[in-house]
């Protein structure tokens, strides 16, 4: 009787058989996807999909252009112009901060001209150099180490998108 109780039920037996089959199938498919033939097939499939996507996209874009409407390419071009402007703005802001760091150093009595071991204030390298000189001047108020910033976090320079 005890042996009957310990015997797996038909559902459990089916479940185990299924899991075994699934495990074997997993191994077989992993061997399959690891083969050179599959890699070649995948490459061609990706190319076909990409080519179809490009064809359909170009066709739609041509239609919009003929209707004198802005197409995707026009919007992308404008977005890239905005991105380039943002890149330039970021670099200008970094230069401004570098100059401000230098002025802070001067106000603290340090020489304005960088020493031999420091780079001149250009681009992103100047701020760490200023910090190494012990005249830290963060762009925003540095948060105290006790985490009080959770109440008044540093403001982002630009708004989040």
């Amino acid at each position: 009787m005890a042996a009957d109780r310990d015997a797996p039920s038909p559902a459990e037996q089916v479940g185990r058989l299924y899991e075994q089959a699934e495990s074997e199938a997993a191994k077989a498919t992993e061997r399959l996807v690891g083969s050179g033939g599959f890699a070649s097939l995948l490459g061609q499939l990706a190319e076909n999909t990409a080519a179809l996507t490009k064809l359909s996209g170009d066709g739609l874009d041509l239609m919009l252009r003929n209707l004198r409407l802005a197409g995707r390419r026009d919007i992308i071009r404008l977005s890239r112009q905005l991105a380039r402007t943002e890149d330039k703005l970021e670099r200008v802001l970094q230069e401004v901060e570098a100059v401000r760091d230098r002025l802070d150093r001067e106000a603290d009595g340090h020489p304005l001209v960088p020493s031999a071991g420091e780079r001149p204030a250009s681009g992103v390298r100047s701020a760490p150099a200023a910090r190494r000189a012990g005249t830290r001047s963060p762009r925003r108020t540095a948060a105290p180490d006790n985490g009080a910033s959770s109440a008044s976090p540093p403001l982002p320079r630009k708004s989040s998108r």
């Binding site: 890149d87 985490g147 540093p154 982002p156 320079r157 708004s159 998108r161």
Partner: peptide
């Protein structure tokens, strides 16, 4: 987890997570 925006550029955003106990400098 609560966090604040520190900096953004194009699609990149730098976040700082709020904390009441920052022990490691």
């Amino acid at each position: 987890t609560p966090r604040d925006v520190v900096w953004t550029h194009r699609q990149t955003t730098l976040y700082r997570y709020r904390s009441t106990r920052r022990e490691h400098p």
